[in-house]
Design a protein around this nucleic acid. Sequence first.
DNA 1: GTCGGTGCGAGAATAACATTCTCGGATATC
DNA 2: GATATCCGAGAATGTTATTCTCGCACCGAC
Lengths: 233, 233
Amino acid sequence: MRCSKVLHVEQKIDAPVSTTSQAPAWKQRAVERSTKAAKLRAEQRVERFLDAAQAIIMEKRTTDFTVQEVVEQSRQSLRSFYQHFDGKHELLLALFEDAMQRSADQIRAAASGQSDPLDRLKVAVHLLFELSRPGPTAQRPLFTEFAPQLLLSHPTEVKIAHAPLLTLFAELMTQAEAAGRLRASIKPRRAAALTMQTVMFVAQSSSVADDEHTHPITSEEAWDFCASGFAAP
Amino acid sequence: MRCSKVLHVEQKIDAPVSTTSQAPAWKQRAVERSTKAAKLRAEQRVERFLDAAQAIIMEKRTTDFTVQEVVEQSRQSLRSFYQHFDGKHELLLALFEDAMQRSADQIRAAASGQSDPLDRLKVAVHLLFELSRPGPTAQRPLFTEFAPQLLLSHPTEVKIAHAPLLTLFAELMTQAEAAGRLRASIKPRRAAALTMQTVMFVAQSSSVADDEHTHPITSEEAWDFCASGFAAP
DNA sequence: GTCGGTGCGAGAATAACATTCTCGGATATC
DNA sequence: GATATCCGAGAATGTTATTCTCGCACCGAC
């Protein structure tokens, strides 16, 4: 169900005060066994919190849950929550990071179905667009939903969370470059960052219907724009 | 100092229950004089709240002010605040709308200095980029700062607030199209929307330094990207 | 088996805000 | 001067996040 690797959370459990190299070996081992067990338990608890939050988000179709709800759903205690997370924001961050990682995986898999480098990029862009748009379509956590919140309070961490996706797009761009399909004047990583941002944010806004005659921007348009820009050749 | 036209706020003062066409004329006039005065006062009050909020934002370099602070700074009362605004979000919206309007004006003025349509667009993009990035540079209210918050809670209103900028870019794009400088396959308004979004959001993220070797994306890169895309011609 | 310690559930206490309500006092209207 | 309206001051309420305090259950040591 959930990624087993625990993200930027965990730590703050095993803080042995004097397990430096001068302690007797048996003591070291004992302490280690103890801390290892503790760490395991901690991971399971963190896991349960994350799953609970996930479940709530899925059910309420929004990221506006309270810590209380998470605690109740996970059948643990508030005390425990704050023992494992620095605050709500860390929980959100963890979920966000997880969602990004999964999305990156999913997109990578989808893109690998194409042989032409530009087709790979195209598939990636379309899928990212779909995954980024809010609304009922989002089976996956509504993963762009809290990005804005976090972007304000913890921009650095958000950037870290973006890393897997950025890496993926950088890979695809590099392949395109190798095939001579990239404009000479642009670096793959740069193109990747710009494309990613554009697609994600445009997708996000595309949910709200322009009340009037104007239709929201589509995945196809976003792709065309990123690929070709707007200026005449 | 501030735009005189009051935005989407005001109203909710003059709600005459029976000023329809069947009331006697003298009464109508009396009521009108009264409501007009009331409206005037209301506008001044709204004005003071907006100015106060602006001042606080400028001073604290963040949009995280409390309603209390605004009330105190404006030397009015909480009661009055809630009589004129539906809540804090309306105040934010008003500020945001105002900031967008001013930015649009500023950009339009700057762009008009160029004669070539693409140069106009280029100037517009660069200025928008500068205005959108947070940090100490922002002499103007940090106007993208609350956009994310509002985008979540009131997407429709945010879209409305974007209108002046969108219109401006649409104008510039249309001029470019008329001069045959736009790709044939793209509609001016679409190009405008895409460019605007891309520039604003990329600028926003560009503030956080990629901790490592990577430099943040520059205004110039954003322009190149929007104008030419990433694919080889 | 009992003792001291530790992990943790339950939930009370605190704090920061937004939002609402209530009370007078000023000012204007008749 | 009586009365209605507006409005400042600030108390009251409600919602969360976050911290604190208790007490119990488990575990290894003696």
